[in-house]
């Protein structure tokens, strides 16, 4: 049995395309990239059994003519896992789209705030110096870590922030990053 060149080439191509897509900021592309990477990895797992041989059924072929069944069992499990996770990821991206009208990976506001601060040390900022009004405009809504529920008020604040944009199910520019 001669090993095939097709599988390595396909796996390499899938990895390259997958990594390229994964590096994008758009979540749809990230999902596509993840799917490609997942398929490439599954193929890699499958090809770890060596060159293709006869189907590993008992009585169908001699043991030495069979291909190794274990990677096939592993890859089946891996495919199921990849599938389930992809479905979850899709649901999440859809939710993100419905919530904030964009499907790019967002900047972490807290990081931005820390980066924008003058002093290196949190102690350099005297809390008495902070203008309450400034604090109000600067702060993003808290994540509501103390509840197991979602934040309706955050939702409404977002609605206010994106005031002027048409509502659901209308084509919108994919990102507003440039306008800020």
């Amino acid at each position: 049995m001669t090993p095939t060149i097709v599988l390595p080439v396909v796996i390499g191509g899938l990895y390259a395309a997958g990594v390229y897509l994964l590096l994008d900021r758009s979540l749809t592309r990230v999902i596509l990239g993840f799917i490609l990477l997942g398929n490439a990895t599954n193929l890699l797992l499958l090809s770890s059994s060596g060159p293709a041989m006869l189907a590993p059924f008992f009585g169908y072929a001699e043991p030495e003519e069979m291909s190794d069944p274990l990677p096939q069992a592993l890859v089946l499990t891996a495919i199921v896992i990849t599938f389930g996770v992809t479905a979850f990821l899709l649901a999440m991206v859809h939710r993100s789209w419905r919530l904030v009208r964009q499907e790019v990976i967002e900047v972490d506001e807290e990081d931005r705030r820390v980066a924008a601060r003058q002093g290196m040390d949190a102690d350099d900022v005297d809390p008495d110096d902070i203008d309450p009004n400034e604090l109000r405009t600067e702060d993003r809504p808290a994540g509501k870590g103390n509840t197991l529920h979602s934040d309706v008020d955050v939702e409404e604040q977002l609605a206010r922030r994106y005031d002027g944009f048409a509502s659901d199910d209308i084509a919108l520019p994919p990102t507003r990053r440039g306008e800020q």
Binding site: L27, M92, V93, R95, S96, L99, V100, I105, E106, D108, R140, P141, G143, K144, L148, H149, S150, D151, V154, E155, L158
Partner: peptide, 13 residues
């Protein structure tokens, strides 16, 4: 992502 609010979805992604 329990509850699916915007900050949690952002962090969850």
């Amino acid at each position: 992502t329990l509850g699916g609010s915007a900050p949690r979805i952002r962090a969850g992604i």
